[in-house]
Structure formats: C-alpha cells, structure tokens
Design a protein around this nucleic acid. Structure first.
Length: 814
DNA sequence: ATTATCCGGGG
DNA sequence: GTGTACGGATAAT
C-alpha cells in the first residue's frame, strides 16, 4: 500500500473490461507527475416515480437491457433516496448503470414509462460527476492510497483504494509551456492547413526558449533549431513536450488554430501525435468551433478565457494577441509584415531570422498572458470544482450553472433538466421589463461624475430571498410584495431560498477577502475576489437565460423591479441635493458637478450608502472632465448607451459608437476617432467640424489615398453560391473573370467608383481603380458622414453643414 | 420585423 | 462520449 499526495490537474476516464476507470493526473509536491486510477466509481442517474409502488418499478428497471457497440447497457441496482426537487422533499430512485455511456441510453428507454414522472442528472459527464460526488477540488492537493501498477504510461500509475481531498493548498506554479506556429500563407489566401505547411514552431517555458524550423537561413540565434523537414518539426515538437513535462500547454486561439493545424499536418505524414501521458493522441473535436485536448496535460487556450470572461473588464474591444498583450502586459508583438513570410521562406532569405524572433515573441506573450490570468482561472476551478480545461472554455452562464450544480449536491437539491428546444423558444418569447433608464439630453458636458451600483442584483437576490423555490410560496401569503405594477409577486419569509443562500455565501466570502485585501496586496486573493464578483454578477442574467436549468422568469422580473426601485432612490436623492442627473442606466448614475466639488460628490455616496440595506453599496467610479452623449435613431429605442468620456489622463471611454469593423473604409474610422478626440480633448467643435470638412474636401478632390477608401470583406463561400450579390461578391466575380481562383476565406478588397446605378455595378478591385476614380460622394454619404453625423447632431450641426463651404454654423455658442 | 450573412482569433 | 454547444451585429429582404 502506498499513500500519495498530488495536485490534481486533469481528469478523464477509460473503459477497461467493460467498466469505467477514472484517471486522475497531477503533480506531487516534490515535482513528479503521477496518474491515479480509480475503478470504484459507478455511473448513475435519478428517477422520480409517479406513485408509491416502487417495487414494481424497481423490478422493471432490473430487466432493462440496451445493446450497443460497447456491449450491453443495464441497471446494476436501484437505491431509495430522498432529495429536494425545486426545493421540496421528494422520494427518488438512484439508478446505477454499468457504464457511463449507458446512462443516456437507459434513460431514453425508460423515460416514457407510465410509472415515471421524470428523470434527472442523466447528462452530467462522468468525470465531472466524480469530482462533484467526491468533493474534490482540481488544482489542489489530493490524497490517494493504493497499489503501484505496471501500466503503459509516461508517468507512474497508482491503482487507488481511496481518494480524498487532502487540503485546499493550490498548485500556484504549474509548469507551463506556450506554443505558437507560423504557417506558409501566400498573400491574400485563407488559412489552408491541408495545403500549407507549418514553417516554424516556437516553444516558451521556464528557462526554455526554442524555435524549430526546417529551412537553413543565416542566423546567430542559439534558440533556433533547424530540422530537415516539416515532419521532423512535428516529431521534435513531440519530443520537446515529452522532455519539458508541462502541466499546461498554452496557446493563443490554439483551440481554433495552432493545435488543429498541427493535428492536420501530422495526419498528412501519418505521424502519431501521442503526447498524452497515457500515450493517447492529441484530440481535436468539433467542426468550425474546435477544441483540443491532451490526456494529462491541460491545454489552455488563453484567448478563450480572456475573450469570454475578462473582456468585459478590459479597455480594448479587439482581442488580437497584440492588443490584449499590450493592455495586460504592456508589451506587444514584433512589428513585421507577415505577407513577407512566404516569399522570404521561398528565398531562404536572412529575413527569416526576423520571423523566428517574431514567432518566439508570440510564444513569450502567450506564456506571460497565461501566467497573468492563471490565478483567475484557478480561482474559478477552486470555487466551481471543475477541471481547468473545462473552466477555460466556459461562458458566464456555464460558470454559474456548474457552480449551482456543485452546490445543489451539497444542499441535497436535485439538478433540474435542461429545457427542451421548444421550451427554450417559449421562454425567449417572454420579455422582461427592463432596467431603469434615465435618458440623457444629447449634449457635450463638463465635470461628470459616475457612480456604479455593481453588486446591485446579487445583493437584491440575497436580501429579498429570491429563488425559484421561494416564489409565491403557500406558507407566506402576507409576505411583502415586490414593488411592481400589475403583479403580486412574493418571496417566502420563513425559509431561505436555495439560490439566495448560495449567492449570499458568495457575497459573504468576497466581503471576508476584501477585508484581508486591505491588509495585504495578494494577487491570488485579488483573483479570488474577482472570481466571486464575476460569478455573483452573472446570476441575474442566468435566471433569465432561456437554456438555463434554474431559469425563473418571475425571479428575473422581481430583481429588475427592485433594481429600478433602488436606482430611483439614488436619482431622487441626487436631485434633492441639487446635482444635475445627466444619465442613468441599470446600475450606474452620471451626475454633472456644476457648482459642486468632487468632494461633495464623494460625500453624497457615503450618505446614500448609510441609507441602503447592509449588502448594497454604491461605488464612486470616476471623474471625467468632459463627455458627450449622442442621440439615438428613432428606431433604436433600446440602444441607450451611446456616449464618450475622456478622463484626466486623456484616455477616451467610447460606448455604443460604430464598432470598428474591417468592412468599413479606414477613412471613416479615422475621422470618427479624430472628431471625438478634438471635441473631448480640446473642447473645440469648430475645429472638429473643420476637420470633417477638410476630409470631405480631400475626398472630393480625390486626394485621400486609395488605401484609405478600400473596403475589405471576406468571401465565405464560392462566388456562384451567393443568393444575394453584394458589392464584395461583384468584386469577386471580376477577380474570377480575370482568371484568379477565389474561394471561401479570400479577402476581397474593392473600391466604389463613380457612376450611376447599384453599388455592386460600380465596384472595382483595388488594383483596377485609379486614385481619380473612386466615388467621393459614396464615401462621404455612406461612410464618413454616418460615422460622425450623430456626434455633430449633439452640437446642433446638421448633415448639410458638412458640405457647406466655411459658413458660420450654429456651433458659435458652444 | 424577419431572415441571411459576416465577424472574431490565427498566418 | 452521461455527444452533438457561438453569439452578436449588420445588411438584405
């Protein structure tokens, strides 16, 4: 008998002799990688019987048999249990099945039996079920007892007779290896993994930097390793992963690009990518949206976590490696022209040295980003109790749902089923009465103060005991009504609701951490606080999310009603205190200081907070010297957020303006940004107007360089397959007529030229059009003016004035 | 208003 | 693999 402690990094299962064996991978405190096999866990689900004659039902269940390729599926045994269904105690049967994949099969076979009301928890993946039932926290210390086994495996294997949580100590410094590839991709062509080879592959770890390539070129860099062929590059990649022994293999968009690409290239050479610790292969699943998995090594796609979870709290609205690293690390990608890579490769030129450096830098940024966000991911892993691989790929609603599922087990609450498609569509028809919006009067304002009510909804849920099981309970007919016209909603005042309880716990845990954070500045604690905040803030949205298991429309309505009630209180108090309320939406209030000082504004928050119930808190977000609120089109009644603010440091916060898309001409994007900069930064509307007029004049005299009026659009299918011939399709037809092979993925760059008729009849390819030919009127009317129109409307300038020569506008008083 | 199409990340 | 998982914005009809 051996006892072993290890940090649990990854979990999967395999079928051995028609039985499931859980594989737990991890690293011991002294740095050795290990695997623990646990064959003692059985798959099961729950049955909710219709009547009390359980014996007949049990006898019937014992006879069920479903055959499959893997062998027969059958019920091993049934157990009587008591669990809560929607917060009410019920008698259920726990049905134990012989194999994990038998669970959905057996459930389908019995679901419609007359003696069965419903089945539950038949779609919880086996490995997740194991973690939940055993109360194991991945990334923390686990203790296993058992016998050493002789197994075909890259790491020692222990056959366990006992597995349990040792303590909550987390693996804070896992071994990370970042990977990034550069591929052959001649100008303008889409990514084609089956045709184009991988040219370079960079690996970056702790004291380990390497670029593997298969072309000899002049270089002095020691980290560059030249191998004879692409197949050797892939072979070397395998060897290096095996030697470095990472816990985590990290990439940036590597679920969607690097690893599927490596997979495709390896398949081409019939090379086994058996880098899994049990010698299993790198597994790429899904079409379109792919994911990549390696047994025993956690593949982290750091882009996915940043995009899905961190993006909301970031400034940038593009998530390229360059932009994200720039914001989070203060360091960007190397500036190279990637269109030069393919020609440089063909010429074996010394320029390839620059690309190798670029490749290594990308892997370094990926490594540093992983280090940076890993504490946040690990905190979610610890709070929710699922593996890092899973947490990495989850959206807000999934994080919330799995947190609730984990808590449900602890509260003996059964997990409701996911709604069938029809029910989801029905839910989507229901409209929640939205949050309170105090419409801004369009205009340019000085000295703006913003308050934020960030934890409003979580604190409402906790304070008012909001939960599906406490809604309109029969035991409290006299409970206070939710402040809402036309509805008589109540929530139980006698027993605590399940969701209210667990969100209150989240809030309380965060409050304790915040106290600690005031004493010490600890990045792990900060990450934990952030994770708890993100999770509790996502609860409200989850309750109104059609595919949610714990969907509750009335709960959502009630939270919103209380939200409107509390924000109205703040607006009222501010007005009573003679502040000018500019704007309010949901959980934030924008005030204009006017004659008041910033100190007055801070004192106001403190006064408000004294009047609020314990859990609620209004935060002083920031001061902005200038801001502009823009009117929305009549048809956009719902689009309230359209404003731009500038802070003391000169950085702009722009919300709701035309998002910068690549199929907008650069001249329009550039002009919009410059106009906002002049108006907010310099406060000079005349100058901004003059700027637009000069751009228009330049367009009219065709002085604006052609590359700034080129519109880029990507083809998504073959030219002949389009039902609607848009401008980019017309341009692609011209390209095709010229004999160029265009297809899905190709970027079409076109220019709209002068003339009459439909736009698609006037498009020319970038290289066909002359500087003199582009249609200034099109670019003025459809690109530049729409981008700045509403900004100027705020200043009382109408579209006509853009084109008038130097006339005195209504801007005078501004 | 509803339906079709495109985009993102990656080279 | 206790299967099948994008989500949001915009242009076209």
């Amino acid at each position: 008998m051996t006892t072993l402690r290890f940090y649990l990094t990854d979990i999967s299962y395999r079928i051995l002799n028609k039985k499931a064996v859980i594989h737990l991978y991890g690293r011991t405190p002294d740095g050795k990688q290990v695997c623990v096999h646990d064959a003692r866990f059985e798959p099961y689900f729950y049955v909710w019987p219709k009547d009390d004659d359980l014996q007949t039902l049990k006898n019937d269940l014992a006879t069920v048999r479903q055959s499959s390729k893997e062998g027969d599926f059958f019920v091993v045994r049934t157990e009587d249990i008591t669990k809560r269904v929607n917060e009410q105690e019920q008698r259920l049967l726990k049905v134990v099945v012989n194999m994990p994949s038998g669970v959905p099969e057996i459930k389908d076979a019995i679901r419609k039996w007359p003696g069965i009301k419903d089945c539950f928890e038949y779609d919880i993946k086996f490995a997740r079920r194991y973690l939940i039932d055993k109360c194991l926290q991945p990334m923390t210390l686990i203790e296993a007892t058992g016998e050493q086994m002789v197994e075909e495996s890259r790491v020692p294997v222990l056959k366990a007779t006992s597995v349990k949580q040792a303590n909550e100590e987390a693996l804070t410094t896992p071994r990370i290896l970042a990977v990034d590839i550069e591929t052959y991709n001649p100008l303008g062509k889409r990514v084609m993994p089956d045709k184009h080879p991988i040219l370079m592959l960079a690996l970056y770890g702790d004291g380990f930097h390497k670029v593997i390539t298969w072309k000899q070129f002049p270089t002095h860099e020691k980290y560059i390793e030249v191998v004879p062929s692409e197949a050797d590059l892939l072979q070397r990649f395998k060897e290096l992963v095996d030697e470095y022994k990472p816990d985590i293999l990290a990439g940036y968009f590597s679920d969607g690009f690097d690893l599927p690409y490596i997979r495709t290239r390896a398949d081409k050479y019939r090379l086994k990518l058996d880098i899994g610790l049990d010698h299993s292969e790198l597994k790429v699943s899904g079409r379109g949206q792919t994911t990549a998995q390696i047994a025993g090594i956690v593949h982290v796609d750091v882009f996915k976590f940043i995009r899905k979870i961190i993006s909301r709290s970031m400034e940038t609205d593009v998530f390229t490696l360059d932009a994200v690293a720039g914001e989070l690390l203060g360091e960007g990608k190397h500036d190279v022209d990637l269109d030069r890579l393919a020609p440089a490769w063909d010429a074996a030129s010394e320029e390839l040295d620059t690309f190798a450096k670029y490749n290594l830098q990308d892997s370094k940024l990926t490594y540093d980003l992983t280090l940076k966000v890993l504490p946040n991911m690990i905190e979610f892993v610890k709070i929710i109790g699922l593996p890092l691989w899973d947490i990495n790929r989850m959206s807000f609603s999934q994080l919330v749902e799995w947190y609730i599922i984990k808590q449900a087990a602890a509260f003996n609450e059964v997990t409701p089923n996911r709604p069938p498609y029809m029910q989801q569509s029905a839910r989507m028809q229901l409209r929640l009465k939205g949050a309170l919006v105090f419409e801004p009067t369009p205009g340019l304002y000085k000295d703006i103060v913003v308050y934020d009510y960030r934890s409003l909804y979580p604190s409402i849920i906790a304070s008012h005991n909001i939960s599906p099981g406490t809604f309109n309970c029969s035991c409290c007919p006299d409970a206070p009504l939710v402040p809402m016209e036309g509805e008589t909603y109540r929530f139980c005042t006698k027993k605590r609701g399940f969701l209210a309880t667990i969100i209150e716990d989240l809030i309380a845990r965060r409050a304790r951490i915040k106290v600690l954070l005031k004493q010490t500045k600890d990045t792990l604690l900060a990450a934990r606080s952030e994770a708890l905040k993100v999770l509790s803030n996502a609860f409200f949205g989850y309750l109104g999310f059609a595919p949610a298991r714990w969907y509750c429309f009335e709960c959502g309505q009630s939270i919103l009603a209380y939200g409107r009630y509390y924000i109205t209180k703040v607006i009222g108090s501010a007005q009573k205190d003679k502040f000018t309320v500019l704007y309010s939406d949901t959980d934030s209030v924008f005030l204009m200081l006017g004659k008041k000082s910033e100190d007055d504004a801070k004192a106001f928050v403190q006064r408000i907070n004294k009047e609020l119930p314990g859990l609620m808190e209004l935060e002083y977000e920031s001061f902005y010297p200038r801001g502009i609120f823009v009117a929305v089109k009549a048809s956009e009644a719902g689009a309230k957020k359209k404003y731009a603010l500038i802070d003391r440091k000169g950085s702009m916060k722009i919300r709701g303006f035309e998002t910068v898309r690549r199929n907008t001409a650069f001249i329009a994007k550039e002009t919009q940004k410059e106009v906002l900069r002049i108006i907010l930064g310099e406060g000079d509307g005349q100058k901004a107007l003059a700027h637009v007029k000069s751009v228009i004049a330049d367009l009219k005299s065709n002085k604006v360089p052609l590359e700034k009026v080129v519109i880029w659009t990507q083809l998504t299918r073959d030219v002949g397959e389009y039902a609607a011939i848009g401008p980019h399709v017309a341009a692609a037809q011209r390209l095709k007529a010229r004999g160029v092979d265009v297809g899905p993925g190709d970027m079409i760059k076109y220019v709209v030229t002068k003339g009459k008729g439909k736009i698609r009849d006037r498009v020319k390819l970038e290289d066909e059009a002359d500087q003199e030919e582009y249609d200034a009127d099109y670019y003025i009317e459809h690109q530049v003016i729409p981008a700045v129109e509403r900004i100027f409307a705020v200043l009382g300038v109408s579209v006509d004035e853009f084109t008038q020569q130097g006339s005195q506008s209504t801007l005078g008083g501004f």
